[in-house]
Design a binder for these strands. Structure first.
Lengths: 211, 211, 211, 211
DNA sequence: GATGAATGAGACTTCATTCAT
DNA sequence: AATGAATGAAGTCTCATTCAT
């Protein structure tokens, strides 16, 4: 009878046995509706109606409505991480890698508004999120950025008098803050020029003064 | 009577006739509960019980539970804005002003966790927020930062080859991203040293290269 | 979603798929409580408690409390109409039919006080009632009476110098006015003798003077 | 804390010391609103706003909202009774008196829709009504009709084989039933011709067969 | 004679969630 | 693997009514 504790979100493990159709249909439906509606305003009834499956299946497959949201976010996150890591493999040097990452990040926010909205607007207000497996994936991404910065410091590309965490905060925070308004008010973004400007600013701040 | 549109949350105007005690009691109660509970988990019953007033007064004075939240945020925001503007009056030069502002901002997130949580976690997922009078106050703050940067550009303190908006995004985004984790996981922050590091980074990025 | 207009009380259609137990339980409960309490004094909580089902089911099955009342009235009305029509089939001649109908009507008011109270006291003050499907049933009954009178006029049993509507008003109004006090103050009625008196009076008034 | 028992309606006595203005304003306001709105949909706030006085005065002057309604009805009833009694003084013979009364009654329903609606639709569903002083006035009217009928029986104008109560029920019920629809759906009534028809019918039924 | 704040209560509405089948 | 009924819990909303001043 008690509300399930927040921590009981059991996002399904990443590799899954052949999904029963209903599972995928529900995730598809939520993605589709999130394009024009905020999560709180979406009802289970709506999701399952669009999915064409029974409402209770949300509970069978995703623990609850939040779990479904987290699953959708997780799927997007895995795709994004995979893509970024692939792109980074072709780069040499921390600054080059950062530029690539920043651009990919902004492009993602611009090109996948559903992903962006979930990440920027929909999950943060739910305390259980920060204990979820999904959040661990987001932290993985944060560590990836941190690793690049640390590599840059080691390679003398990046100044070593400032905590690398702070540098990462600036990069990710800058990107997020910039993208927030376009995502909220549905404006497009010229991702390349913005990435260029942000890199220009950040690199000027973090680059090691040679000589 | 038509249902009030989300945007009509009607935050009370700033200067108010002697507010009835109940109004203040409700706002106090919500502030108090937000210290240990997220907004969604707080019920109207809980708020009014702690306030020691009748539940329906939430609707009389704040339209609904969200409106009460927005009012609380607005009260904090007004205090913060007033404080920052006062401090800025004693500063000369854009960089000095930015340093003052960044430090005040971080100190606020550190010292007033309820304010910080509302701003960083609780309001963004509600679409009506971005049409509220409360959000306009937040934008006022954003413009304040922008004005300082523009002043700095005019005075040749800050480089003019990057949009001032981008600079602002970096500053505010950096602050927010840094403060996010401490706010979520209830860690303290050594606001001075962090402000110092962020200023150091940002100023290196935005300062006009002389010569 | 727009608030449902009063007229959309949506009484369920007469022939229904196997009604879920809860639906019937709620109707039963209201009938039971109406025996000793007026509709306005009955709360949703009381109805659902006696029904042993959840309060919200009132809204699922009947739109609202009024809708439940109308449904109960409609069920009674259908039974009554069916019974009267069956009895009338065995009668020949308008006056004979009227006598049968008048007696059945009074007997119903006497024997089913809940039905009587709803019809005489509880629905009239609600404007939406007169646009409801339930009210249409009541009008159907009115037309039935009218048809008998018209038949009587055609067959020269009933005078043709007075509008048949007026005759119907007299019959139905007389019955209602007579039954009002017994219903309100819970007195019994000797329906046969009263029906006899009313018929005697009315028939004397409406009969065609032969010769 | 308990709801006042229905019987505690204390309609003000008929002759009153010079009414404070507010009292009359409230009654006027209710009369005015009842012209286009049913009693349940009218709020105290609305009444007092239109009256231009404070809401609480309803309680000072009329015990509660119902009391105000009853007072308005009572005022109308007194006027009506006075008028009818005056008209009757000029008539001789029971049938003549009944004709006068029936016509006055229908004319009242037609000419004063607020009075009609209160009497036909708004008070009956409130159990306390039947214990109120106001209802006693209505019964007074009923007795007046009865007295005329009894007089007619004594004078051999009216048949003596039927209870006079039954005759009264037929008269008053017939009038009410006829007027119900016009009042509900706001149609006008040609009171004279209707009165004529009803009298024609009723008199044919109740007249003593001479010879 | 009057006011405005506060109260209590109940209707209404909507959901997420659970459960029996 | 799925379904539909039922539940519990709040938020929302609106009032009549009371009370202190």
């Amino acid at each position: 009878m008690v509300k399930p504790a927040v921590s009981s979100l059991q996002p399904q493990s990443i590799a899954e046995t052949p999904s029963p159709p209903a599972r995928e249909k529900l995730a598809d439906a939520l993605r589709q509706i999130l394009a024009y509606k905020d999560f709180n305003s979406i009802t289970n009834a709506e999701i399952s109606k669009i999915a064409g499956v029974n409402e209770s299946l949300i509970y069978r497959y995703f623990t609850n409505k939040r779990g479904l949201l987290h699953q959708v976010l997780q799927d997007y996150m895995i795709d994004f991480l995979t893509k970024v890591q692939k792109e980074l493999k072709e780069r040499r040097g921390a600054l080059d890698k950062l530029r690539t990452l920043i651009q990919a990040h902004i492009q993602m926010y611009d090109g996948n508004r559903v992903f962006a909205k979930i990440l920027l607007l929909e999950v943060r207000n739910f305390p259980g999120y920060f204990e979820s497996e999904t959040y661990q994936l987001v932290r993985t991404y944060g560590r990836l950025v941190l690793d690049i910065i640390d590599e840059g410091i080691e390679q003398n590309e990046i100044r070593n008098d400032i905590s690398s965490c702070r540098i990462r905060d600036l990069i990710l925070g800058g990107i997020e803050h910039f993208c927030m308004a376009p995502v909220i008010f549905d404006h497009t973004v010229s991702s390349e020029s913005v990435a260029e400007q942000l890199c220009n600013l950040i690199f000027a701040g973090i680059q090691k003064k040679t000589g």
